[in-house]
Design a protein around this nucleic acid. Sequence first.
RNA 1: GGCGAGGUAGCUCAGUUGGUUAGAGCGUCGGAUUCAUAACCCGGAGGCCGAGAGUUCAAAUCUCUCCCUCGCUACCA
Length: 561
Amino acid sequence: MTKKRYTVTSALPYANGPLHIGHIAGAYLPADIYVRYRKSKQDDVLFVCGSDEHGAAITLRAKKEGLSPQEIVDTYHQLNKQSFADFGINFDIYYRTSDPLHHQTAKEFFEVLHEKGVFTETVSQQFFDEEHKQFLADRYIVGTCPKCGNDNAYGDQCEKCGSALSPNELINPKSTLSGNEPVMKETKHWYLPMQEHEDWLRDWIENGVFNGKQRHNPKHWRSQVIGQCKSWIDGGLRERAMTRDLDWGVKVPIEGADGKVLYVWLDAPIGYISATKQWALDNNKNWQDYWQNDAELIHFIGKDNIVFHAIIFPIILKAHGDFVLPTNVPANEFLNLEGQKLSTSRNWAIWLHDYLKDFEGQQDVLRYALCSTAPESKDTDFAWADFQTRNNSELVGIFGNFINRVVVLTNKYWDGHIPAKGNLTSYDEEVLAELSNCADKVGQLIENYKLREALSGVINLARLGNKYLADTEPWKLKKTDEKRTQTILNIALQIAAHLSVFSEPFLPFTAHKLSDMLNIEQGRWDKVKELQSGHKINGANLLFTKIEDEVIDQQLSKLKA
RNA sequence: GGCGAGGUAGCUCAGUUGGUUAGAGCGUCGGAUUCAUAACCCGGAGGCCGAGAGUUCAAAUCUCUCCCUCGCUACCA
């Protein structure tokens, strides 16, 4: 029997800007935790991501800055790739959609769909900017809202009154590129008639059944994901253009399609596949193993991406054939910052590359804070004061302190040699039972994408350790009962060893520091090795340090600047 | 506007096949302790579960109406 394979993806970051904590909390950290857990169990898991480098937004940004689109994406691809690596997000490959292999893959994909007659071709009238010689997405047209009179309504929506618009409803429409009035021009595009896929989609979303087979349990999908998909399907799916008039992207590989590229939302998810191909080439693997048969495909995304990953991409995969559909799409809600929505334009954000600079060596503190307040079921808030408290009272006070106590005592009493375990009390037995349960308990939570609860299961193990020491008071017994003292510290050290394994998906830097302190190899999730008596551990080395008020004040004033 | 997801302790959040006194962490108040980064451990206080109505022996949980937040609304990505 072949081993089950897992393909985990995180949404491809759009390469026109840096990453902030909202991105991290939504799509990257949860995926990384999940993948590290699977790897710790020695599951066959592949974690892919990369830069999404096409689309009109990048060409516009390039124009505005007087650079080429390639220069823009090169800059942010490098920056983001480096930030992820420094933060410990351990992709097996961080790819980019400008890569030739991706262009080839995406073109082939489109060709197959085209040959199968999946698309319909439609000619329509669209707004065109004559100065920039470019068709305009609704978003790039502004004008006066016919409903509320707002002068800055977009072609698709008026942000003032909230009404959905179409660009020809706007009074005095203007191109945001040139400021000129756009003209109507004819253009042909290839559309995906999604309405033809409603029946099987509904069965798949509601029941987890695909091609007559039970593929997943819909109870394990988040309510916001199922809710939004059903809302779309119940409202009736429509056709959606899969091509765009643009010169930056994957060229449409059909005659008569000059000047047209694939819609980025067709292009980008295919990037997951291209990335897998590249990784397979680099590592002498077979990419199909991760996309066919019983492979489990899991997409980590933010809530704004649900429809693309749970409706459009699955339609495309099925229409193409020979692909699995996602087993789950654990979309997160959004993270707010100090009670307000993150905003790139207002610079209301904590940028990952800034954090890494300001808090050198403290990646795990942010990982901990973000996972503790991850927006798994509703929007949540990140506050610097909370970040400080999490660090000072939980990481320093509970986790770091427990480890320090155990390591200091062991060094002080037995020169760092692990003492032997003698007769066990019923309390000892309880603690050891709790330890062996932990792998399954926390593991189940991770497999159900309840990472916050899983993390609190880990920190609770450190709490248990502190309580065990407080209850048994080995520092008192040392003078009167050497044997008992040895048993107690042996058990406390076993807790520490388990912590080095169970904390790894969440706090990888800390976990490795802890393994080093205990002088052991990084252990496996489902087979935590018992520390043997006589084994020599190293001296105490603090896992975390307190964060003072000044540091927090500095960050707060940086935000307001 | 339509649809989806939320609204629970001072704060950040768990909690629905309807069922004893509604949970955790932080904060707060009190106690204990000194191996440890004044850390840890124990205990107390603190909630008309957004508002109102309904179904039921029983509602945070089901139904309806309303208010508030966020998302989607199909060419932003």
